[in-house]
Nucleic acid binder design. Structure first.
Length: 880
RNA sequence: GGUCACGUAGCUCAGCGGUAGAGCACUGCGUUCACAUCGCAGGUGUCACAGGUUCGAUCCCUGUCGUGACCACCA
């Protein structure tokens, strides 16, 4: 006996335990050729499950389960990411709470601490994903820092270096003076803040001044030029003259550069090549010196006058402004709002600074990546994201690969004392290279020092789809599962990750890393705010799973998976999901109560079912299956979920179950159960727990069945067709005259119910039908028509008596016995609606152009109008 | 400044060349033996605005307004 309520807490872990082995078996199973592979975006080891993960995982899992049920060799490749900077920050903070500064520990000990912490927390998030039902193979979990991955990263770096794509260069980068590392421009956000604009006079000649505007007066010590626009008539005469930097004796030229905007500031601006991105470019164009005036903590260095040395930027700024004011070199100060770059992770103010870093030349890789999407080898869903992707790749900058932190893949480059670099996947090989270079045997190679920098986390992530399959070895897995099929992720990492995987994938494997990129919507809170810890509006998926059940959460997320739109999720939506799960439970209880057992010999698709109602529900089932398949294949998980909802509630419960309440025959019992089990199959990808549980409950006695997890959807019909898909339009096999009549009489009962509602009848009524072609059908199907129409009896007569309620469905008239006075307004309203419909149709039909353009549709409209006119005429004829 | 979305019932959102749908909310009825985490019935709309294409536009095109996101810039 099923319990009164579905207790998700009781069964979820059991289902997970039972599934484990099968999930990994289907991956290893070699009997089938077609594979379906998803590389899961590896969550950070620092992370715990949030709704974004949950959403992405559910979408991936629906695909995995769907494909697994369809016989593919399915691999959901799990992994976790070492998340360089993010993790280093967290562990450093933990150490600080113990009163230890991470740098005191020394590199080796610090890394040991991180590993320790990784062992503690690394598994949590995967466990949470499994709780969410994600059918990943836990035997195959990979970590971006595990030995094989590290080797692959070193190999990849070395190859790119050899091919001349990786180089070391002094370029301007975003420098985080707190973490003391370069960071990617993708990790820097511009935040709007209040600031000031200082108009400063630069002395020119004996008594002249040039006024420039700046928000960063303290950088003037690094100035190498003032710039005006070459076409700016006001200042043309100044080009080539020299000015003196205030507070110093340094003299710099006035140059002409297109970058200068005559409208902005004073029309003249200072050029500080080592500390501003635009100025850096100008500096390169005009071959200006790159004078670095700060140290790694953004304190002014020895290049500046003594009194300013060692001061942090903000202090130096005030002091410079003071000094300038004393010398009356400040013309005016404006309060402005401007944007200031900050590191997303640390919150630190970013200093653009010229430093020595490793770069990857990306132009060629970007071109390859653009082409792969242009020619359709990779498809974005929704397609609009290709624009974002293209735009970024077309304006791509060299990728700064190096980070001055400790946690990550150390750059595989060793230096000799004379500065000679040896890039090799291992130290051993670097020594060999050095031996060759120095023309000595290995033992006599002078001491080599490894580059202390580590690689940007996204470098290893960029190799992930093939590294997880064993690359650079030519493994069987790689041959079998690569390219992978679908990548599911959020739009926020198209630049960080998606494009890098495509670039590096094409470069190293000569093939795309995946064929489809499904960009899932961003989860926001009920008010449309981005969820974030600082706002305190984060909803914990574990809380939702505990309270409403994992299936409820999954179903709700699926209904919200609308392409191209952010979703707003509040608890109330999950409640709706839970209610639907309860509905399924209750349907199951009815099936059980009705003693509808499953029997494997009973074939609902075989065409042997006789009762019209049973044939009808099977036809609906086939349509439902076809629709569901279609929606999943088109990544419309929202429509797929809707389909499930509608079929179960509107079709199966509201009509079929209601109708069969009076049936206790063998065929109906078997059909009801079989159809319900078929429904469970189709719903399984989105709600795996309740479906698996009920599947077992109903098939237990038959022994032969395995888990629903691997139960194929394919039925006789689709097997016959050889397509594996059953589409709704092709379901004629059980759609015949009887089914049409069934549809019709269901419509009649709906009309009766509607009338009952409007009039407010409580008791059951008696229906009269004029004798005709349907007499036999009515006789055979009276039982369920009575149920659905809330009727007492149906009587076939030759003519209707006076009074009562008459109504028309299509061309046929019906009569309900009813002696009380009824309000005519109900019928007036019906007649009005009919009349306006007829008028509209009439206008359409008269349209000759319409008739010519769409003759079939036009003919349908003609028929429809005739029907409506009959209905109206009959209503008019009723005497009240 | 550039790009891309979005504007449909009170709310959240589907739909998309033949004048509209769901869920929630709301109203009425109902505890008839699957279901009150419920059932039955019901109402609800200048489909942001203005032009254009079309026999016909909520749907396609252009523009306007509004909202949001991303990128760039910010002397």
């Amino acid at each position: 006996m099923l319990e009164k309520l579905f207790d998700h807490g009781k069964i979820e872990s059991k289902v997970i335990d039972k599934s484990k082995e099968i999930i990994s078996k289907t991956t290893k199973n070699n009997s089938r050729k077609e594979t379906f592979t998803i590389t899961l975006p590896p969550p950070n080891i620092t992370g715990s499950l949030h709704l974004g993960h949950a959403f992405t995982s559910v979408i991936q899992d629906m695909l995995l389960r769907f494909k697994r049920q369809h016989g593919y060799v399915v691999l959901g490749q799990p992994g976790i990411d070492h998340a360089g900077i993010a993790t280093q920050i967290i562990v450093a903070n933990q150490l600080r709470e113990k009163g230890i500064h991470w740098q005191q520990l020394g590199r080796e000990e610090f890394i040991a601490q991180v590993w320790k912490w990784k062992e503690q927390s690394g598994g949590t998030i995967l466990y949470q994903l499994v709780r969410l039902g994600t059918s990943i193979d836990l035997d195959r979990v990979r970590f971006t820092m595990d030995p094989a991955a590290s080797e692959a990263v070193a190999y990849a770096f070395t190859r790119l270096y050899k091919d001349g794509l990786i180089y070391r260069d002094k370029r301007i980068v975003n420098w985080d003076p707190v973490l003391k590392t370069a960071v990617s421009d993708l990790e820097v956000s511009n935040k709007t803040e209040d600031g000031k604009m200082w108009y400063i006079r630069y002395p020119m000649g004996q008594s002249d001044f040039i006024t420039i505007a700046t928000t960063r007066p303290e950088t003037l010590f690094g100035d190498q030029a003032l710039a005006v626009h070459p076409d700016d008539e006001r200042f043309k005469h100044l080009i080539g003259r020299k000015v003196r930097i205030p507070l110093t004796d340094r003299v710099i030229p006035i140059i002409a550069d297109e970058h200068s905007d005559p409208q902005k500031g004073s029309g003249i601006f200072k050029v500080t090549p080592a500390h501003d991105f635009a100025d850096f470019e100008i500096g390169v164009r005009h071959n200006l010196p790159m004078m670095i005036i700060m140290d790694e903590s953004a304190c002014l260095n020895n290049e500046v006058p003594e009194e300013f040395r060692g001061l942090p930027v903000s202090v130096a700024r005030a002091k410079v402004v003071n000094a300038l004011e004393e010398k009356r070199l400040i013309v005016r100060i404006e309060n402005i709002v401007h944007s200031v770059p900050r590191n997303d992770r640390s919150g630190a103010m970013i200093e653009p600074m010229v430093t020595n870093q490793w770069f990857l030349e990306t132009k060629r890789l970007a071109d390859m990546a653009i082409k792969a999407v242009e020619d359709g080898r990779i498809k974005f869903i929704p397609e609009q994201w290709t624009n974002t992707y293209f735009e970024w790749l077309r304006n791509i900058q060299p990728w700064c690969l190096s980070r001055q932190i400790w946690w990550g893949h150390q750059i595989p480059v060793w230096y000799a004392e004379n500065g000679k670099m040896f890039c090799a996947p291992t130290e051993e090989e670097a020594i060999q290279q050095a031996a060759k270079y120095f023309e000595v045997s290995k033992e006599f190679v002078p001491k080599l020092t490894r580059d202390p920098d580590v690689l940007d986390t996204w470098f290893s992530s960029g190799l992930w789809p093939f590294v997880t399959l064993g690359w650079p070895e030519k493994t069987a897995d790689l041959a079998k599962h690569y390219p992978t099929d679908v990548l599911v992720t959020g739009f926020d990492i198209i630049f960080f990750w998606v494009s890098r995987m495509i670039m590096l994938g094409l470069y190293f494997t000569k093939d795309v890393p995946f064929r489809t990129v499904y960009i899932n919507p961003l989860v926001r809170d009920e008010k449309g705010q981005k969820m974030s810890k600082s706002k305190g509006n984060v909803i914990d998926p574990l809380h939702l799973m505990n309270k409403y059940g994992t299936d409820a959460l999954r179903f709700t997320l699926a209904t919200l998976a609308i392409p191209g739109r952010d979703i707003r999720l509040g608890e109330s939506l999950v409640e709706i999901g839970r209610n639907f799960i309860t509905k399924i439970w209750n349907a199951a209880k009815f099936i059980e109560l009705k003693e509808c057992f499953f029997e494997k010999e009973f074939d609902i698709y075989g065409g042997e079912i006789e009762a019209p109602l049973n044939r009808w529900i099977v036809r609906k089932l086939i349509e439902f299956k076809g629709q569901s398949e279609l929606h999943i294949n088109e990544y419309r998980f929202d429509l797929y979920a809707q389909c499930i909802y509608k079929f179960l509630k509107d079709t199966f419960c509201d009509i079929y179950i209601e109708a069969i309440k009076s049936c206790n025959d063998f065929e109906t019992q078997r059909t009801a159960c079989a159809v319900f089990l078929e429904f469970l199959k189709v719903a399984h990808p989105v709600i795996p727990f309740i479906t698996e549980f009920l599947w077992e409950e109903f098939t237990r006695t038959q022994q032969v069945r395995g888990m629903l997890l691997t139960e194929p959807w394919a039925d006789e019909l689709s097997v016959q067709r050889g397509t594996g898909t059953s589409s709704g339009t092709d379901a004629n096999l059980s759609y015949d005259a009887t089914s049409k009549l069934t549809d019709y009489y269901i419509a009649v009962t709906e009309e009766i119910r509607s009338l009952r509602g409007i009039i407010g009848v409580k008791e059951k009524l008696d229906l009269l039908v004029i004798s005709g072609e349907d007499d036999e059908f009515i006789a055979r199907n009276t039982h369920w028509i009575l149920n659905l129409g809330r009727l007492n009896s149906i009587e076939v007569v030759d003519a209707f008596p006076d009074g009562g309620i008459r109504f028309v469905v299509k061309n046929q008239e019906f009569y309900l016995k009813y002696s009380n006075e009824i309000s005519r307004t109900v019928f007036d309203k019906k007649m009005q609606t009919l009349q306006s419909e007829i008028d509209r149709l009439a206008a359409k039909i008269q349209n000759e152009a319409y008739k010519a353009a769409k003759p079939a549709q036009w003919a349908e409209d003609v028929t429809l109008r005739e029907q409506k006119e009959v209905e109206l005429a009959k209503l008019k004829a009723v005497n009240f």
